[in-house]
Design a protein around this nucleic acid. Sequence first.
DNA 1: TTGAAAGCGCTAACAA
DNA 2: TTGTTAGCGCTTTCAA
Lengths: 343, 343
Amino acid sequence: MGAKRCAVTLEDVARQAGVSLATASRAINGSARTVRPEIRERVERAARALNYAANAQAQAVARGRTNLVGLVVQDIEDPYFSSIAAGAMRAAEANGLMVSIAGTGRRPDKEVEYAAALRGLRAAAIVIAGSRTDDRDALDRLGAELDAFERSGGRVALIGQRRLPVDTVVVANRAGARDLGTRLVGLGYRSFGVLAGPRGLLTAADRLTGFAEGLAASDVVVPHEAIMYGEFDRDGGHDAMLELLARRGEVECVFAVNDVMAVGALAALRSRGLERTVAVAGFDDITTLRDVTPALTTVRLPLVEIGEAALEMVLREPADTPRRRLVRGEVVLRESTPGVRRG
Amino acid sequence: MGAKRCAVTLEDVARQAGVSLATASRAINGSARTVRPEIRERVERAARALNYAANAQAQAVARGRTNLVGLVVQDIEDPYFSSIAAGAMRAAEANGLMVSIAGTGRRPDKEVEYAAALRGLRAAAIVIAGSRTDDRDALDRLGAELDAFERSGGRVALIGQRRLPVDTVVVANRAGARDLGTRLVGLGYRSFGVLAGPRGLLTAADRLTGFAEGLAASDVVVPHEAIMYGEFDRDGGHDAMLELLARRGEVECVFAVNDVMAVGALAALRSRGLERTVAVAGFDDITTLRDVTPALTTVRLPLVEIGEAALEMVLREPADTPRRRLVRGEVVLRESTPGVRRG
DNA sequence: TTGAAAGCGCTAACAA
DNA sequence: TTGTTAGCGCTTTCAA
């Protein structure tokens, strides 16, 4: 067993200050200014002398609420999520909240598990940022758990797509990809491939759909065989690119459904000496990836703001009907898609 | 005020199962198998039916300990820290712990503040990953706070350099940079510049010192005017590189004290058409940066393992004398330092 | 304005 | 094996 905890308690402070427990509580952690200044001063001095730190757990039990908010992401190492986390943490700090972060490793069931844990912690709120799959079952379980969480007085916000009747920061993946497709056609590309990420991953699917729509507006289609599924990460993009080359030869332009994959694709092209021959576009505009060469055409998502927005949403009183906040991406054309001159 | 929390309590479960509170507690959250199977089954069924989630705060108060560990980093968006966080979170999950993450934004006082908050939360442990400054005062305050935390029964580990008498995962910045310097001299470089990061940032200073030592072994020195101080991030590297070019012209090889800065430096060189003329080396081997071109020579640090190691350290019983776990970096030569042929 | 005391939900002696 | 009960540290009525 670990050493027994023997921290300074409020009772110690009260005794040292020569006041009652209640008064000490009011002086230090209470709200109403119902304590005489000189007494308050005395209590505060005692607390400082004893280096008192209020037991947040005990306060939580007594008050029935905490200042903890849980953030559930897929993988904190992924810059997409770490930017969102940074935004959420910044907003949390501004509001005196602590953030507990959990990573699911892209297993939908982990989301449910953490939500339950956060309910146990009596977290004030849960924010879930996940490119959830279309696994209907997992979604139902998550919905049930979040429901229980809300009924027990907690607040919930999702980041991604609107799949559940809770406050959601909706990312316009489809519209962004559509815009991108339109712009690429405008640059003269006609022959496309898509590195589509995993089947069943909603974010990926939305981006693929939108992209196809953007092309379709100009009667361009992505042949079925030029859509390569694979992992949602760098290696997934790399491998899918190689396979696409093997299968289709040199398409003019490749859309990878996120930047990390796009970078993998670029690496694959480079290994074949094709990085200036085949155009590549990504999605997200990941900060740390802005210096790759050729600079990546992409759809910029304000990830930090998205994290902040989710946290702010969750801080507000619940509305009777779930709020949606739409965040659009903005196409950023760079040298990875220089355009083609058609004769 | 927010809605009143009215979660299912253990008492509800006990009543529903027709047993006493104590029995219900033992059946669900207790350790010893001192409950008859059929009763346990009954209690568990009741809990499930009621969708009971134990109040972790109340458990914490009653037990006097929590399963929360606090992780304090500078900036979760920085891949250096997000990798460490990923490692710590992975190890935490494997041990049934929740992780609360706080970002200091590189303000040393925030470390103290969060440590105090975590003491209030009765966190089981605190892990601080910070390239702390040489600000003696801030360090003393942190030491005092961590001391109070430990005395109240918590465990502490640091990641970085050994500055305080607590368990530490020591990163061999100096030795790594020394090796790097040696290898670069071996490649034929003689004229160096260093993008040294902020003055007073220990990690940066250690890397600079080590690098200079590595060169000195071959009687190569970095001229004082070729050491450029600046921010520890991408823009810091970029700007410092431009300034170095302005001041010294084309040195043969530039050492940026971290990869992110090195990428900024590459961008600056590229803007001058010099990215294949001036060699660049970094430090860390950040995963998402492995595909920049030219591929970056660097010192690889096992960041995820470092995070795991810190968490494992903190899980063990405290030793009577602080533990140190040394992690060395490994030089990785890539095309950003092709070497020179001297005539 | 202050103090006494009743909880908050749970655990862990101690009895039965 | 089960139940009773006294805490855990704090907040918050309710009186004084």
